[in-house]
Amino acid sequence: MVLVHLNHRLVQMCLRLLRAEVWAQDDVKKLHRVTVRAVPDTLIDGPAVVVISRLVVTGGNHHRLHEELTVAGGYLGDKAFRREEGVTKAQQWLDQAKPLTAADSLFEAIRVRFDRAQSAILQAIDARSKDRLKFLTNTLQSRKQQEVADIGSVLDELEKAIQLELKKDQQPAQLSLFSEDERTQLRRDTAALEARLARIPVERQQEAEAIETRYAKLNDRTFPVAVIFLVPESAVQGGAA
């Protein structure tokens, strides 16, 4: 987890390999994006589906501000799909799901229901992303304010340091002992520090505006990554869907 938070190069390489495998063609990929699992009858009484998606939140200039995996699920009824509103409920399904080797007839029955409900399932995924974005809005606003405060603190420290250095240069020790080249260099250094000090207010405004632009116009993009079909354990034992 530490390496992930530090954006370590090894983590970046692993993510690149994962993304490449996710989007690889079916005839060459080694990572399967669809699976069937069994869930206790106390959780579901019929086929259900959980879709894991990659949510990317971007701001101004399409700058990526946040990325995470989301979970959206619902019930694959015989006639219609019904979204499970509780995210914790869908996660509970995954936590208690057990792998199984589904018979062709079982998988085909579930696939038919899934194909019929694709539009409703995509709407549920999009709704989940919108709900997540509402929650993330405050988090991103807090991060924006923190970035503005951080850059302000850095520039304040720089301003104080330059002012302190200029005070030292105004009263150099034994200036008369300096050579002409040394005095010229001292004047140049002082002029450079003064010019740098004069740019700080403009930089403070520019940095704040850049941060504001980066966090403006939040937009979410969702990319479904994996589909998990869930069936009650009794249905697996009975051989029905």
Rank of each mutant, 00 (worst) to 15 (best):
R132P: 04
A38R: 04
E203M: 11
L55N: 04
V34L: 15
D45F: 07
G239C: 04
R188N: 12
R64K: 14
Q25K: 06
K168M: 11
Q146H: 09
L55S: 00
F229G: 00
F229W: 02
D126Q: 13
L65W: 02
H8T: 04
A191Y: 04
L65T: 00
V50F: 08
R199W: 14
K144C: 15
V112E: 14
K98E: 15
G59F: 02
E194C: 06
G238W: 11
F178Y: 08
T42W: 06
D115I: 09
Q237P: 06
E165T: 05
K160D: 09
R132W: 04
H63G: 05
E68G: 03
A191F: 04
V49G: 02
T184N: 10
S53K: 03
R183E: 06
G86T: 05
N219K: 12
Q141I: 06
S105D: 15
L177D: 12
V87R: 05
E203F: 09
L100Y: 01
V36T: 07
E209S: 13
E194H: 05
L6P: 00
A80K: 06
A20W: 09
K160F: 10
Q171I: 06
L155C: 04
Q141R: 13
K130A: 14
L94V: 03
A210R: 14
V4Q: 06
Q146A: 15
M13A: 08
R54E: 12
R116K: 11
W93E: 03
L140V: 01
N61A: 14
Q237C: 05
K30P: 00
H32C: 06
C14F: 11
A191Q: 08
R221I: 11
D131G: 10
G239V: 07
D220I: 11
A208M: 10
N138Y: 05
V236Y: 06
R199G: 10
R33L: 15
M13Q: 07
R132Y: 15
I52Y: 01
G74R: 09
T222H: 01
A240C: 08
S53I: 10
A161F: 09
A195H: 02
G152L: 06
N219A: 13
K217T: 07
V49Q: 02
Y215M: 07
E67P: 01
E233A: 13
P99T: 05
P224W: 00
L193F: 03
Q146R: 07
Q92R: 05
E85V: 09
R37W: 11
V71P: 02
F81H: 03
N7T: 08
L197E: 08
A24R: 03
G59L: 02
